[in-house]
Computed example of a mutant assay.
Amino acid sequence: MAAERPLRLNGTDRPDRLLSALTGVVAVYRRLSEVSGRRRPPVSEVDRDLPLALAAATPEAEGVRSLRLVRPDGGPLPRWRPGAHLDLVLPCGLVRQYSLCGDPDDRSYYRVAVRRIGAASARVHALEPGTRVTVRGPRNAFPFVAAENYLFVAGGIGITPILPMVRRAAARGVGWRLVYTGRDRASMPFLDELADLDPGRVWIRPDTEYGIPASGAELLEGSPESASLYCCGPIPMLTSVRVDAALGGRRAVFYERFSTPPIVGGKPFQVRLGRSGRTLDIPADRSALDVLRENVPGIAYSCRQGFCGTCELPSATGEPVRVCVERNAVTLDL
């Protein structure tokens, strides 16, 4: 995913005044997070390692490469539904999550797309066809729920989970609209595939062609409030869309982020290391994982959002703790 930019708005006066007041944004974001947390079902654990081979790697946009993964024996892969992702285990041992963006009905391959933004994605971009990799999953933290009307909003590499949803909605013959925004067209993957869809339902909205990133209100324009909203992209875009969706009375809002969420309304707490007896103070604006990594080298992590389980550590009571999202005092078996 491209580096996030500071949020600048080009919407109506009301959303702009609200979003310019930081305390207002924090309060609304906090309420939305609590509601979304209650609505989102838990992510099912998938205890399955699949040995796959890289069949092809294709440039999709500036800094974006798609991978076509297959079974070495050519057999069918486990089923998946739009919104699902894989844990990709690289030969070096790093684990990263990538949304499936191929055809759910074609079980001969999995396709993911990766934007080069750091060490792990650089290793993915360096993989050559024929390389053997391991994947875990598929699992779904962004389920696509049946509805009569949809609004899809994607930002940059956030198009990856949205693309199969759009195709499924089109195949069902229900109402849908896609708004796809990004830095510029060159950085936006899969524009050629979107060109095959109904052009009257697709709005490609690059920042460079409008002079400013879109406000949430602008991205929501032209869609009925009753439409189920699916949104994926950088945190500033997600926050703007969710705030303006709440102001407009939308209730069916589903979203996925590709970066670590901000800690909103956090409180300080302590983590005690049972073996050494050390106590670590965790500030309100940091995670236990952040502080543990500074004090205990070698702690593994990946998604930093609480669903992959890579950072899970045993507590003194034997219960596993995912330290990237833990917000209570706890004693770890370290």
Results as ranks from 00 to 15, higher is better:
R8S: 10
G11M: 01
R14A: 15
P15F: 02
P15H: 04
L19Y: 09
A27H: 11
V28K: 09
L32R: 10
L32D: 09
E34D: 13
S36Q: 13
S36T: 13
G37H: 07
R38F: 11
P42F: 02
V43P: 02
S44A: 14
E45I: 11
E45A: 12
V46M: 09
L54D: 12
A56N: 10
E60V: 00
V64P: 02
R65M: 15
R65A: 06
R68I: 14
L69I: 10
G75Y: 07
G75E: 14
P76L: 13
W80C: 00
W80Y: 12
A84K: 02
L86R: 02
P91H: 08
G93W: 03
R96L: 05
Y98N: 09
S99M: 07
G102S: 10
D103R: 12
Y109S: 14
A113H: 00
V114Q: 02
V114W: 00
I117A: 14
S121K: 01
A122T: 15
A122I: 05
A126P: 09
V135N: 05
A147G: 11
Y150V: 11
F152K: 01
F152A: 02
T160L: 02
T160P: 03
L163W: 01
L163C: 04
R167N: 07
A169M: 06
R172K: 09
V174S: 04
V174C: 10
R177W: 03
Y180M: 05
R185E: 00
R185K: 06
S187K: 07
P189I: 01
P189E: 02
L194T: 02
P199C: 11
R201Q: 12
R201T: 08
V202G: 04
W203H: 12
P206H: 08
P206M: 09
P206K: 08
E209T: 12
Y210T: 12
I212N: 10
E218D: 14
G222H: 09
S228T: 15
Y230T: 11
G233A: 01
P234G: 13
S240W: 03
D244I: 05
A246I: 03
R250P: 05
V253K: 00
V253Y: 01
F258S: 08
S259M: 12
T260C: 08
P262Q: 05
I263C: 01
K267Q: 14
S276V: 06
S287Y: 05
R293T: 12
R293H: 06
N295D: 14
N295E: 15
N295I: 03
G298W: 08
Y301A: 14
C311R: 04
C311E: 08
C311S: 08
E312T: 15
A329I: 06
V330F: 07
V330T: 15
D333L: 15
D333Y: 09
D333F: 09
